[in-house]
C-alpha cells in the first residue's frame, strides 16, 4: 500500500511540475487575476445589486469560466502528452499499475487547479477586504449599515470550486482513457461540462408533474443521475456575503456529491484505461 502511494505521489509530483511550467496555465491565471482585480473598476455595472455582490460574482465568474477551461484542456493535454510523446511507454513498463498512473496524473492536475483556485480566492479576498473598508467608512459617513463579507465563506467557496474543477478533471480523464485524440477529448469534455451546468433542468423536469412519456422520464432520470450537477457548486455569493442563509449540511451535501462523482469518474477511467493499447 505504501509503495502504491509512493509511486502515485511521484507521478503526481512530476505531472504538477510539468503543468505549472506551462504557459497556458500562466496565461489563464494572469487573465483570471486581471478579471478579479478589474471587478472593482467595473462595479458601476452592478445592475442594482449590492456593490460587493457584483465584485464577488464577477470574480467568481472568471474563476468558473477560466477554471473550467484550464481543467478541461490541461487534463486532456497532460494525459495525451504522455501517450503521444511515448513517455507512457517508459513509465508503464515499470512496476506501476495503470490505476496508479491515472490517479497520479489526476492528483498532479488537481494540485495545479488548487493553485489556480486558491491564488484567485486569496486575491479576491484582498480585493473584497479593501473595498469593504472603503464602504465601511462611507457607510459611517452616511449613517447606513456597513457591508461585510465572510472570509470563511470565501474559503468554503474556494474549496467547493476546487472540488468542482476536480469533478471536471476526473470526467475529462475518463473521456481521455477511451478517446484516441486530444481534440475529441476536448470537444466531448466541453459538452460534458455544458451538460453538467444544465443538469438541474433535468432534475427540475423530473420533479414537475407532467404527462411526459416513460422513455422521456427514463432519459431525464438517467441524465440527472449520470451527469453531475455542476451548478450546485456555484453558491459563492451566498457563502461570502450571506453565510447564514445556507446551512452547513447543505454545503456538506454538495461536497459529498462532488466527491462521489469524482471517485466514480476515476474508477471508470481506470477500468477503461486498463485494456488500452499504449
Amino acid at each position: 500500500m505504501n509503495a502504491r502511494l509512493n509511486r502515485t505521489s511521484w507521478i503526481a509530483r512530476i505531472t504538477f511540475l510539468e503543468a505549472i511550467r506551462q504557459r497556458f496555465f500562466a496565461f489563464l491565471l494572469v487573465l483570471s487575476a486581471a478579471m478579479v482585480v478589474s471587478s472593482v473598476s467595473l462595479r458601476f455595472m452592478d445592475f442594482g445589486h449590492s456593490e460587493l455582490k457584483f465584485v464577488a460574482d464577477f470574480a467568481f465568474g472568471g474563476m468558473f469560466l477560466f477554471g473550467s477551461v484550464l481543467a478541461l484542456v490541461m487534463t486532456a493535454q497532460l494525459f495525451f502528452a504522455e501517450i503521444e510523446n511515448r513517455t507512457a511507454l517508459t513509465l508503464l513498463a515499470k512496476p506501476l499499475s495503470r490505476t496508479e498512473f491515472l490517479l497520479g496524473k489526476f492528483l498532479g492536475t488537481w494540485a495545479v487547479l488548487g493553485v489556480f483556485v486558491f491564488s484567485l480566492a486569496f486575491l479576491q479576498g484582498i480585493i473584497l477586504w479593501s473595498r469593504t473598508q472603503e464602504l465601511i467608512v462611507m457607510a459611517a459617513e452616511t449613517g447606513r449599515v456597513a457591508p461585510d463579507f465572510s472570509v470563511s465563506g470565501l474559503a468554503s467557496f474556494a474549496v467547493l470550486q476546487w472540488l468542482r474543477l476536480g469533478v471536471v478533471a476526473a470526467m475529462v480523464l475518463m473521456v481521455s482513457a477511451v478517446a484516441r485524440t486530444f481534440l475529441f477529448t476536448v470537444i466531448v469534455g466541453a459538452m460534458a461540462i455544458v451538460a453538467g451546468q444544465l443538469q438541474w433542468l433535468a432534475q427540475e423536469a423530473l420533479l414537475k408533474p407532467s404527462d411526459a412519456s416513460v422513455v422521456t422520464k427514463s432519459l431525464l432520470w438517467v441524465s440527472s443521475r449520470v451527469i453531475p450537477n455542476l451548478q450546485q457548486f456555484n453558491i459563492g455569493d451566498t457563502l461570502v456575503l450571506d453565510p447564514t442563509a445556507i446551512s452547513g449540511a447543505a454545503v456538506w451535501s454538495v461536497i459529498l456529491s462532488g466527491l462521489f462523482y469524482l471517485v466514480a469518474f476515476l474508477a471508470l477511467a481506470s477500468l477503461a484505461f486498463r485494456r488500452r493499447e499504449i
Partner: peptide, 30 residues
C-alpha cells in the same frame, strides 16, 4: 516488471528534468 528494465525505441523524457532527476524518478517508480 519489477525484475525488468526497458529502453524504448527513440526514447523521449520530460525535458525539464535533469538526467539525474529522471533516473531518481524512475528509481522511485521502480
Amino acid at each position: 516488471r519489477q525484475r525488468t528494465g526497458f529502453l524504448p525505441e527513440a526514447p523521449y523524457f520530460h525535458k525539464f528534468l535533469t538526467g539525474r532527476e529522471l533516473v531518481q524518478y524512475c528509481a522511485r517508480l521502480s
